[in-house]
Design a protein around this nucleic acid. Structure first.
Length: 873
RNA sequence: GCCGGGGUGGCGGAAUCGGUAGACGCAGCGGAUUCAAAAUCCGCCGCCGAAAGGUGUGAGGGUUCGAGUCCCUCCUCCGGCACCA
């Protein structure tokens, strides 16, 4: 055995050994329990960052651990290869998005392989390959035929200078990121997926996902947002004709307090009123300014203008003025709301601003209402009752809603209704680097799906990106085609699909990536039975990606033409949401006011007393740069830290070990390489300990504590406690930092114990073998190498995880903590066989108790089994 | 604005079901080894205090024999908000 730990050498050897033995190759085998372990696939942005290392190391730890438990493990990898960054890179560097993407994939694959991940690379694919997206197009046409995909108008961000649609990310402070122009909302036709048809099932399914973090289930529940309320109408006359203005409310009990109605700027009634009202038309035009992101809409100043129109209150027939409000969302409910300023914060602020009346209709007997305290009347639905509401006075929330809904129903002006916050999913993108939408527009036949035999609709790969509009719309050779139905000249759709579509089903395709005839085959039945056993990915995907993936799983299940395969209701049985790796951001503002983001590696940073970056200068010119926030590592903020230098300097095992040791996986982690040295030191120390043992000669490992002297008995107990702890941390808890700490403690204890006797050498053999195997999931190369030295004929990658010897855990004495009045005052060793009375007596007689009870008698003695005794005086 | 999560020594973090706060590691300090350095090894290390002891988990309040953990109010940071992925 080599004396020095040489990571580069042993990592090369281990990786070539695993390749030779096909250690990570997954083969269907119905006789073994399967374990499909999947990490969210990366976008090929160029280089790995620390978030990737964290994500894929966690996945590999679980995959390797479960292999050691004897399960048939599948751990695949792919590339989420369509997306905006490729087009941005194309613009900046005059390269084709396809070439840029494939280059990135090649580089990042090498980086992943250098980490020693036990991935079955035979199942790799990139979503930008026609072999993958043809099945996405195929599914699109099936869903289109079933009406689960349909066309309607949608609102997008429009850059009037670049004449192009912008993503929300490309709208900065209401302006286009490249042109600087004020962004406008614009309505265009788009395809939508009817996710709302599955709202009820997506909500109910959350209750079955017991191995998902509660946090994620809660966020999805709130996102789907089921609320029960009343859809009701305010009647009015328009040019002599009776019309109804519909609104939705969850607070029908406040209907008698309505003092105005507000409609969205895009509402037809607003447009009608604006015809004879230039001022209102100007206001509606103003509302079009700015982007469509909800965070911006919700935080902007609430503005409104009266339309001059009135509607009639459905129950009192009183006139109610109609306003246009910029805070009313056309996309939720009816695009119109009834306003009850006395009992809604937003309505109250609006009424105050524009001098609209405020009528209290909720209260409690004997209490009075003042404008300052209006919130008190809103909050508690349980206690509140109707007041100033005529026949509804005295009714509590639920009764009032029922009574009012019943009266509205009699008038044909309303009914109870379930309302969802969830909206249908707009999947059209006016972009090039995505999956072409397989539709042909024919003047005679309308929107015709591309027939199966014409799939895939291939995306031309050699194109020039100009930043203005979609290149496909300028390529007659792409869009000029014939109608599949009537054969007349027709125009191919030039929009592409939202890239979330690719990531909504890739996990199924990994089971059968080579099938050229079907989207999926029976292999999916094996690997995905009961769902993918473990899914690992960033918490930032808690809602959108995970919801869309759940939705797609149900869609594919329900498309009967995907024959012979049985898809589970839910795709991911167990979910581990990784916390983000965050890092400080730095930037300089260019002459045009645009931010140029600078990588943390390129600046020198001064920190304040709280350790946060306060000032920074660019290394190349020594001049200051602006310090931004601490944010998740991303390409757009250029704050990703490349792990390659870490791997080059210390090896993959140290990088992996440090990443796992730095913090629990679900917690966000502010990147710092302080402490990498400690991980490396630990591996070196372990190497040295093993080398010393091997030098003295291999022996048979001990297997019992029966004849060991006390010191060795204690050490062997520590070993088996550690095996129990590490198994629990890998398996149930999925918390790897504490598993590493436990192994470190074991090595510390091992180092402190004398090792001369044959019994000690046998125990050393047992301990070192166990450490090599326990560390194998996290640091597989050194685990492989050390185990081979300790057991020359064995292969760690083919060896079971160490088992706990329960008899080694037995203890003669237990140390009890002694508390007096809840404060720790001492400790006491008592025989493990002592009963409760004996423990109480011993505690009361202890020196700590005597000293701190000050002669008072014990009022109560609390014994917490195996832990402490609290004497209450 | 809305939804979700976090805040514990100089730093990363531990404390798993309400029961020893600070495991493990980093940094620091003192020592050994060395011609010297690196590496390694030993010891110390929340704060106040000479000690006894007191105090301490973002702030304030509460429940409990006992609270980092449960409840209420607030501050602050991070993620998501439907076209970043």
């Amino acid at each position: 055995m080599q004396e020095k730990y040489a990571p580069a050498e042993i990592e090369r050897a281990a990786q070539s050994h695993w390749q030779k033995t096909a250690a990570a190759r997954a083969v269907e085998d119905v006789n073994r329990p399967k374990y499909y372990c999947l990490s969210m696939f990366p976008y090929p942005s160029g280089k790995l960052h620390m978030g990737h290392v964290r994500n894929y190391t966690i996945g590999d730890v679980l995959a390797r651990y479960h292999r050691m438990l004897g399960e048939n493990v599948l751990q695949p990898m792919g590339w989420d290869a369509f997306g905006m960054p490729a087009e941005n890179a194309a613009l900046a560097n005059h390269v084709a998005p396809a070439g840029w993407t494939y280059q990135n994939i090649d580089y990042m694959r090498k980086q992943l392989q250098s980490l020693g991940l036990s991935i079955d690379w035979e199942r790799e694919f990139a979503t930008c390959s026609p072999a993958y997206y043809r099945w996405e197009q195929w599914l699109f046409t099936r869903l289109f035929e079933k009406g689960l995909i349909y066309k309607k108008q949608g609102t997008v961000n429009w850059d009037p200078i670049d004449q192009t649609v912008l993503a929300n990310e490309q709208v900065i402070d209401g302006r286009g990121w490249r042109s600087g122009a004020l962004v406008e909302k614009r309505e265009i036709p788009m395809y939508y997926m009817k996710i709302t048809a599955y709202a009820e099932e997506l909500l109910a399914g959350l209750d079955t996902l017991t191995d998902w973090p509660e946090q994620v289930r809660l966020m999805q529940k709130n996102w789907i947002g089921k609320s029960t309320g009343v859809r009701l109408a305010f009647p009015y006359e328009r040019e002599g004709k009776a019309e109804k203005l519909w609104v939705f409310t969850t607070r029908a009990d406040t209907l008698m307090g309505v003092t105005f109605v507000a409609v969205a700027a895009e509402h037809p009634l607003a447009a009608y009123a604006a015809q004879k009202n230039p001022e209102l038309a100007a206001f509606i035009e103003e509302c079009k300014q700015g982007g469509v992101a909800e965070a911006d809409l919700a935080t902007m100043e609430k503005k409104g203008m009266p339309t001059g129109l009135t509607v009639r209150h459905p129950l009192t027939n009183e006139e109610v003025p109609v306003w246009v409000g910029n805070y009313v969302l056309m996309s939720y409910g009816e695009g119109a709301v009834m306003a009850v300023p006395a009992h809604d914060e937003r309505d109250f602020a609006f009424a105050q601003k524009y001098g609209l009346p405020i009528h209290q209709v909720i209260g409690a007997e004997g209490e009075t209402f003042s404008l300052d305290g209006w919130q008190e009347w809103y909050g508690d639905k349980q206690k509140a009752v109707c007041v100033n509401s005529g026949k509804y006075d005295g009714l509590a929330y639920a009764d009032a809603v029922d009574a009012i809904a019943a009266d509205l129903a009699k008038l044909d002006l309303g009914e109870k209704k379930i309302q969802w916050r969830l909206r249908d999913w707009g999947i059209s993108r006016q972009r090039y680097w995505g999956c072409p939408i397989p539709i042909i527009h024919c003047e005679n036949c309308g929107d015709v799906p591309v027939p199966d035999e014409q799939l895939p609709v291939k995306l031309p790969e050699n194109v020039e990106i100009t930043g203005a509009g979609s290149p496909l719309a300028r390529m007659p050779e792409f869009y000029e085609t014939a109608c599949p139905k009537c054969g007349k000249p027709a125009r191919r759709e030039t929009d592409t699909l939202d890239t979330f579509v690719e990531s909504s089903w890739y996990f199924l395709r990994h089971t059968c990536p080579d099938n050229e005839n079907f989207m999926l085959d029976e292999r999916v039945n094996y690997w995905c039975k009961g769902g993918i056993d473990q899914y690992i990915g960033g918490i930032e995907h808690a809602i959108l990606h995970l919801l869309y993936a759940r939705f797609f799983t149900k869609l594919i299940r329900d498309v009967s033409s995907v024959g012979g395969v049985h898809i589970a209701d839910e795709p991911f049985k167990k979910l581990l949401t990784q916390g983000m790796v965050v890092a400080p951001t730095f930037f300089r503002e260019g002459k045009d006011g645009k931010k140029q983001w600078i990588n943390p590696a390129d600046v020198n940073v001064e920190t304040d007393e709280r350790g946060r970056p306060a000032r920074a200068t660019l290394k190349t010119d020594g001049q200051p740069v602006t310090v931004g926030g601490i944010e998740k590592m991303s390409k757009s903020k250029n704050n990703g830290v490349d792990p390659q230098s870490l791997i080059d300097e210390y090896g993959a095992d140290t990088a992996r070990l440090f990443m796992m040791f730095a913090s629990p996986p679900d917690q966000s982690l502010e990147w710092s390489d302080a402490g990498v040295e400690g991980a490396y030191r630990f591996l070196r120390r372990l190497w040295r300990a093993t080398h010393e043992h091997v030098r003295l000669g291999l022996v048979k490992a001990s297997s019992s504590s029966a004849d060991l002297p006390d010191a060795l008995k204690d050490l062997r107990r520590k070993l088996h406690q550690t095996i129990a702890k590490v198994s629990d941390d890998y398996g149930r808890r999925q918390q790897f930092n504490t598993a590493v700490a436990a192994v470190m403690e074991l090595l510390n204890a091992y180092d402190k114990t004398d090792s001369g006797t044959p019994a000690a050498r046998a125990l050393a053999q047992e301990i070192l073998e166990a450490i090599a195997l326990m560390l194998f999931p996290i640091a597989p190369h050194i685990g492989q190498a050390l185990y081979a030295e300790l057991k020359p004929d064995a292969d760690a990658a083919q060896t079971a995880f160490p088992k706990v010897d329960a008899s080694a855990l037995a203890q003669d004495e237990i140390e009890w903590m002694i508390q007096v009045g809840g404060k720790l005052r001492g400790s006491l060793k008592i025989a493990a066989s002592a009963d409760k009375a004996a423990i109480e007596a011993a505690a009361l007689a202890s020196e700590a108790a005597r000293k701190f009870m000050e002669g008072k008698s014990a009022k109560k003695v609390i014994v917490v089994p195996g832990r402490l005794v609290n004497i209450v005086v």
